[in-house]
Design a protein around this nucleic acid. Structure first.
Lengths: 343, 343
DNA sequence: CTGAAAGCGCTTACAG
DNA sequence: CTGAAAGCGCTTACAG
């Protein structure tokens, strides 16, 4: 007699459970998946037997037999960016609860191509795919929509495919107004092309929104006040240096990400200038380190975007043509990197 | 005639390929997996047929038949920490190349328990498991070693199980020496319990190493100069405030992570003190934002740790009892947050 | 509500 | 070097 429940012959199979419960494997299969049309008494017998044998369904067999993978793929160009890892955490949270697996991959150009073309390797292993920060643009969105595999895009709003993003124009407006309200008239903008050379919507929408908001109060955004910061810390630093080298530098700058704003803060320090009094800096994101550095910024709830994306995918997979469209909240977080212009 | 290669009857199976190549499915299976004992001419025929039909092996079927999952699980308590996401990126890079899947999960206490107990649900779906930053300590390590599933621990050095970590004592010594060499005698230490209440090795080793290095040059580290910063930004801030409220505050502080050091920098600013001249701050990690904030720190190559861990796992899985033990390099990165003590 | 049986698409001894 | 065949552990019409 062994106290150990583990079977020396390997884990229990559905046959073992069927035998123990005195029913067929078909019944076990139904009972375990909460199918209708299983007598309550039968279900209890099966559950007890399964419990007793520590039975766990072999997912490979289940997937092969059913044709469903119960896993969704997630692709992102840069797994280590704060935005991406935050989204992933949100997605993972929801999927874990739903007992779905998450298959994570780097969206290098090759993988990207494969996804867009509907490569069988992907289709066969996943029930759906979530693209984070891939910046497919409307064109890519159309291709995605044609796939057999449902796709969801996070971080960019596309017409052709289910996608979630903040209202970029609105965020831009909030940043512009904050600076204008403080009294700034010479205002700069640092955006970027992110991790790809593809033209994409996010920076475009933000730039347009920012320009429009300034124009609405009679302020022009000249070319010399716009720089590409590459959505990186170092890029932000260089771009800020470029702006500050103008004959009449801006007195305030909006950077489309907090990480770029960190670089801008660095540049200011190198120039012996202090943020908030000499030059105003406002970011976008509310990165976890932003508070420590007193960065004024527009917060976007990134983890919520991940959660929402995962739920939309689950709805898709369950056959609900979910039309849910939660508004994603944007909040101005006022810290110490902004102030009225030097007179 | 349709130009589209896709079959309306669904993707090609191994039978289709066998038929097209005029061989048995067994031969197709062998040829495609580069088995020995397949005639070169046969292999070519098979490859051509597979290519022609855009054949892709159904991994669920392969896994069911072979009993191998070709995926490894990765568990971490906090997917969003910089350390973890950096490790994950390194692991992913190596596995993608080896055509292994990565199944990512949050190591909440429940999952943790299941892993340690060898829950069948995990064992059956993965060939191996990598624990990142889980801080199992020697006790947990012993349990892991007993599992049928090979386990690798990253971020902590354990006797009982394959594990990778920097030399914590050495890193501590580097930090201590740097401060001592600058002339500091009143030196503080901020460590923490990380994301768990379990006592774990990393902070313990670092604290011991730091204390020893100071004692070696005749400096005592009193209790009042040691605080718990919880390995978080906010924790670092609070801990720093605590140290600075001492009657005779330390003139220099080592924080066991850059994120805590960000918080310390914040605290200093709140006190109207400037890092590097009023109080010296040194971190550990070299976080991507550290450069922008002038933080002097000890760099550890986190992505390399991920890569190395993945390779060790692959070796394990291939049956090589790899004894490879790359030294993990530690580098002092001197920026502007340290200087000689105020006189 | 339940069971017998086919089938999912591979891999792998075994025999030659 | 190659093939016939069993088997991996489920799910799912189909029939009752």
């Amino acid at each position: 007699m062994d106290d150990d429940l583990s079977n020396p012959l390997g884990p229990a199979t559905i046959d073992d459970v069927a035998k123990a419960a005195g029913v067929s494997t078909a019944t076990v299969s139904r009972a375990l998946r909460n199918h209708a049309y299983v007598a309550e008494s039968t279900r209890r017998k099966v559950l007890a037997a399964a419990e007793q044998l520590s039975y766990v369904v072999n997912s490979n067999a289940a997937r092969l037999a059913s044709g469903q993978t119960r896993t969704v793929g997630l692709l992102a160009p840069l797994l280590t960016s704060w935005y991406t890892s935050e989204v992933v955490a949100g997605v993972e949270e929801v999927f874990a609860q739903a007992r779905y697996d998450l298959l994570i991959g780097t969206a290098n150009p090759l993988a990207r191509e494969r996804i867009f073309r509907g490569d069988a390797r992907f289709q066969q292993r996943i029930d759906g795919v979530i693209l984070v920060d891939v910046f497919c643009s409307e064109e890519g969105g159309k291709q995605l929509a044609k796939l057999d595999t449902p796709a969801i895009v996070l971080g960019e709003r596309l017409r052709a495919v289910t996608s979630i993003s903040v209202d970029n124009a609105r965020g831009a407006r909030m940043a512009a107004r904050h600076l204008v309200d403080l009294g700034h008239r010479r205002i700069g903008l640092i955006g970027g092309h992110a991790h790809t050379d593809v033209v994409h919507n996010v920076p475009t929408e933000r730039a347009a929104g920012f320009t429009a908001a300034l124009e609405a109060v009679g302020i022009r955004l000249p070319h010399q006040y716009v720089e590409d910061g590459d959505f990186s810390i170092e890029g932000g630093r260089k771009a800020m240096h470029a702006l500050m080298s103008r004959t009449k530098p801006p007195t305030a700058v909006w950077l489309m990400s907090d990480e770029m704003a960190f670089g801008a803060l660095h540049a200011l320090r190198e120039l012996g200038l202090v943020a908030g009094s000499d030059v105003s800096i406002i970011g976008f994101d509310d990165h976890p380190a932003s508070n420590a550095f007193g960065l004024t910024t527009i917060r976007q709830p990134v983890r919520d975007i991940g959660r929402l994306g995962a739920r939309l995918m689950l709805d898709h997979l369950d056959g609900f043509g979910s039309v849910m469209h939660h508004p994603i909240e944007l909040t101005l977080i006022d810290r110490i990197s902004c102030g009225p212009p030097r007179t």
